[in-house]
Design a protein around this nucleic acid. Structure first.
Lengths: 215, 215
DNA sequence: TCCCTTGGACTTACACCGTAAGTATCCCGG
DNA sequence: CCGGGATACTTACGGTGTAAGTCCAAGGGA
C-alpha cells in the first residue's frame, strides 16, 4: 500500500489523540504507518509540517452548516461547528487554536460567517471586525475547555469541592464570594453565555436597539 | 552566589524570549545560570515545571490598576493590564494563555475583576460568567496577536498586498469583498472593538437598556 | 575541637529525538 | 528490455530530558 501525505497526517492525528502532542515522534509515526522513520520525509518536509498538517486536517473535517437566512442562527451554528470540530480531538485542538490557520483550509468557514454578517447589514469592514471578535472569544473558550483538567467540568466533585475550599480561604473577598461558581466550569453554559453576549451586542450595534432580555 | 528557583525561572524567561520556547533546554538554561544541567533539578522537579513557572512569572509581573469605581473603566484597565503583561513577552505569552493559570498567581486579578462586576450590580454567579466571557475573548485576541507573523500587523505592506491578492482571487465572494480588511489586522483596533462589544452587552444586560451608539 | 549530617553541584549514563547523507529496490514509460 | 525516477531503508550525528551515583563544603551537636 503506497504511503501518502494524507495517510501520514491521518495517522499522526490518531497518534496525537492517543498520546498527546508531546508523545508524537517521527519514529512512532513511521511505525504507525508501517515504515521506517526516514521514509516519512518523502511525503513531509519535517515534523513541524506534520503538526501544521494535523491542525489543517482537523479544521478540514469541520462540517459547515446550511445557511438559514437568520444571521444570528447562522453565526451560532458556525460557532457550534467550529467548537465541535475542535473538541472532537481534544489533544489536537490546541494546535488548531494556537497557530493561525493556513489560509485556504478555513476560508470556507470564513466566507460563511462573513456572508451571514453581510446579510445582517454589516459592511465589508465591520463584518471582519465582528468575525474576529467572535472568533477570538471562540478560541479562548475552546482553549479553556480542552486544556482544563477534569477537576473543572464538574465530573470530579471532590476536586471541585477542594478547589472551592481553597478559594473560600483566599484573602480576596470577591473571589471568596464567588467561590462556588469559580470552583467549577460548565463549558457549555460559559460558551452559550459569552456567545449570547456577543450576538446581542452585534444585533444592538446593527439596529441601534436591543433585543428583549436574553433568555 | 546561591541558585534559587526564582533565578532559574527568571533566566528561563529571558532565554525563551531570546530563542523561543522550542529553544529552551535544560542544558542551555543551566549554562545561562552558570551551572551544570543536573543541578537545576535541585530547584525544579522537571522541565514542565520550568515552563509552568515561566507562565506564572509573567502574570506575576502584571501591574494591577487602581480601581476607580467606574466598573467599565476598571474592567477595561484590567484587560489592558493583562494584554500588556502578555504582549511584553511575546514568546512566553503562548504559555500563559495556553495553560490555565495555577490558581494563586492570578487570584488578585480575578478578584479585581469580580469586584468591579459586583459593584456594577451583577450577582456572584453572573460576575463569574461575565469574567469568563471577557477572559476568553482576551485570550483569543492576545493569542492571535502574539502568534500572527509580521505579515499581518501592517508592518509588512508587501506581505499584506500579496495576501489581499490571494483573497481576492479566492472562490468565496464574501471573502473577496472583505479582502482588504482580512489581509491585515490592526491588533489594537480589533481588541478595542471586541472589548467594546462585550462591555456594551454587559451594560445592557445589567440595566436592560443600551448605551448610546458606541464611541 | 572534631565529626558527621546534609544539601547542593558535578559526572556519568541511557534511551530517545529530529534529520542529513548515502544506498538499495521497485515500477513504469520509452 | 532497459534506464531513470520515486520510494523505502540504513547508518550516523548531535542534541534532549533525566535517573543514579559521587563529591565536597558548610553548619550544628558532642
Amino acid at each position: 500500500m503506497k504511503l501518502t501525505r494524507e495517510k501520514v497526517l491521518a495517522a499522526a492525528l490518531v497518534l496525537v489523540e492517543e498520546n498527546g502532542v508531546q508523545g508524537l515522534s517521527m519514529r512512532k509515526l513511521a511505525a504507525a504507518v508501517g515504515v521506517e522513520a526516514m521514509s516519512l520525509y518523502n511525503h513531509v518536509p519535517n515534523k513541524d509540517a506534520v503538526i501544521d498538517g494535523i491542525a489543517e486536517l482537523v479544521i478540514r473535517r469541520m462540517a459547515l452548516p446550511e445557511p438559514t437566512g437568520d444571521w444570528k442562527a447562522d453565526l451560532r451554528q458556525l460557532a457550534n461547528a467550529f467548537r465541535a470540530a475542535a473538541t472532537r480531538y481534544p489533544h489536537a485542538a490546541g494546535l488548531v487554536l494556537t497557530r493561525q490557520l493556513g489560509s485556504n483550509a478555513s476560508l470556507a468557514g470564513t466566507n460563511a460567517a462573513l456572508s451571514a454578517l453581510r446579510g445582517a447589514g454589516f459592511d465589508a469592514e465591520e463584518a471582519v471586525h465582528a468575525l474576529r471578535a467572535v472568533l477570538a472569544f471562540l478560541v479562548g473558550t475552546v482553549l479553556r475547555e480542552v486544556e482544563s483538567g477534569p477537576a473543572f467540568d464538574g465530573a470530579d466533585p471532590v476536586g471541585v469541592a477542594q478547589r472551592e475550599a481553597e478559594l473560600l480561604a483566599s484573602p480576596f473577598p470577591a473571589v471568596a464570594e464567588s467561590a462556588p461558581f469559580l470552583a467549577s466550569c460548565e463549558h457549555d453554559r460559559e460558551y452559550e453565555f459569552g456567545l449570547d453576549l456577543l450576538l446581542a451586542a452585534l444585533e444592538f450595534r446593527r439596529t441601534g436597539s436591543g433585543p428583549g432580555r436574553s433568555s
